[in-house]
Nucleic acid binder design. Structure first.
Lengths: 193, 193, 193, 193
DNA sequence: GATGAATGAGCATTCATTCAT
DNA sequence: TATGAATGAATGCTCATTCAT
């Protein structure tokens, strides 16, 4: 499997660095190849085209978020705590990989509609786990019975996303991690049963 | 003043249509000129360059949002009602101009960092009016005294934005206007004093 | 006659200034119009097209050179002295109008082949007066009987021209007028009978 | 080194032909590429931009002149003979490559000031070799002791240049080579000690 | 005569992708 | 597998000229 060979990961990681440092529109395939230490042509042994690199970046990195939430979902804690850990985990991953934060919050959003639709498919898996937490909360009474799951999910994700984007746009100069409790409180209040 | 001459508005409106129908990267100046019914060169009598067209689109259209909220802010109604009308007005404008919805939620976000920074400056005026509503709410007790204004603003705007983007990405196939009450309720719960 | 109306001269003089200060390729018709204090369209009441302005610049200014040499030619002095006065007069005109020097030595030479051919036609009148001096010199024995007139003219004009161009390219920072005696001596030696 | 690869020379030679046949302002990069038998993009693997092609044309071709004079300078012949061979060599190169003659005498002079300054830098090397011959002549008494080197160089180069330009402008319809003895005689007379 | 808003043809350059080695 | 030289399509902007007023 191509994805298991070392150059695959090398290229994905190079792409994150190149995009973060040069911006989406200045992230040429040749720059990524150079950063990865391979020839331009080698990229095409591992990826179908440039779009495939970008989707792979998103998919590979999104897997980290998904894995974390899967663990959280199985833990024996209440819904509010699960949401807190999800928010906190989300913030932590981007807090610890600042290149990745720039790429997901600013750069990849400059991609064209088609690419963003494909990115959204990858994102869907993450949002379904969020839905699972919310549904669980409704069942066990932690969240408002009449809650519209889709809107609730949009509020949770929209708030998290907007908070991180603001932080990145302010050059990550304050401590993102410190915001999780208040973000959690705002969100919970909105949905509490 | 150039902005008052009829061709200025003609070109801005043409740009919205062309971008919505062809996508940001396929919105060539010549296409915009053709849609506006003027020669390519005429564009440059009214706009410094292509970026200037795009910023003008955003500024001209954002003015509609800003004007609405300015009116709402001065009305003799409580904070919760002001927020409801703001959300409802925001939804209505994009509900009634579907081209504009595509442009603001999907296409203009593909612009490069520099253009987005300039777009953000325009957006700031709108967000400051939102801040004014929130501050008023804290003073008159409608909102939680300890509310972090920046986070609250990010929740309100993030939720609105995410809701509209979802609607646009689903090809505007459900009724956006019907969502305002529930979005308002979610948001208010999160911030209620 | 158009050439006698004041705006004609205004536009020609404006062209010299604009070309000298902005360079040939940055001397747009609209800049010349502005410098002359007329509307763009007015230019076309006096000149057929842009090329016509440039040829007119050359023709009007060349007339000054031609008039001077015509006077010199009729004077009751020997050939060597006539050549000296011609060189000295040529140097003086450009020494006294530095804008014109830049325009004739550097800027107008960037024009296309066709324009330069037309400029050469204007120049021909001047070169024919030079030929007249040389022929007179051969007849009266001041110059070598076997002298090839065309080559001699090319040496005289080539040397004058190259000397002035060097001076302009060195930002006119030494005194051009002081060079006439030595230039005259070099040239005369070459042709002396 | 790029300059040693065959396509480099191919492109430079194609540029000479295209410029000579179409004129400086009609020498589009795509025409040069086509003449050279390469793709447009290939040009940019060998040259930074269009200006770089033009400078390279001048530099590569000027090298031929320089090499010839370097050989002449070292020969065991007197100053007058060295000057003759220089003039004759200069005439011969352009006599044998009529495209090149058009390019150097007419077309490249239409380039903008910046490009001409860079061309002049390349030319300087050639003029310094001419200076060397003149200095040698003064030392060994062949040339006038009081000769102003700068003026003398300007006369020699100005005369050669004007002679060739006249020949090119007359569509090269007479035999340039036959003029070298008389040009040499005129020049030598001017400077003889 | 004088104006100046409108016109529209024309071109250097980038970069994702291929394929011979 | 890996290379990297070669490809070629695609576009924002300028400015000489016109013509309705």
């Amino acid at each position: 499997m191509k994805r298991d060979r070392p150059k695959y990961k090398q290229i994905v990681d190079a792409a994150v660095i190149v995009i973060a440092e040069n911006g989406y529109h200045q992230a040429q395939v040749s720059k990524i190849a150079k950063e990865a230490g391979v020839a331009d042509g080698t990229i095409y042994l591992y990826f179908k085209n440039k779009e495939d690199i970008l989707i792979s970046v998103f998919r590979e990195k999104m897997a980290i978020f998904v894995n974390n939430v899967e663990v959280i979902l199985e833990q024996d804690i209440d819904t509010s705590e699960k949401l807190f850990r999800m928010i906190d985990s989300h913030f932590r991953i981007l807090h610890e990989d600042r290149h990745l934060a720039i790429v997901t919050q600013l750069e990849l959003r400059q991609s064209n509609k088609e690419l963003r639709l494909r990115i959204n498919e990858v994102l869907k898996e993450y949002l379904m786990l969020l839905d699972a937490i919310l549904k669980e909360g409704i069942v066990n009474g932690a969240l408002d019975e009449g809650l519209d799951i889709r809107l609730a999910r949009q509020m949770v994700f929209g708030t998290i996303d907007e908070t991180i984007t603001s932080w990145v746009m302010n050059d990550q100069k304050y401590d993102l991690m410190k915001l999780s409790p208040e973000v959690h409180r705002l969100i919970m209040n909105g949905m509490k049963g």
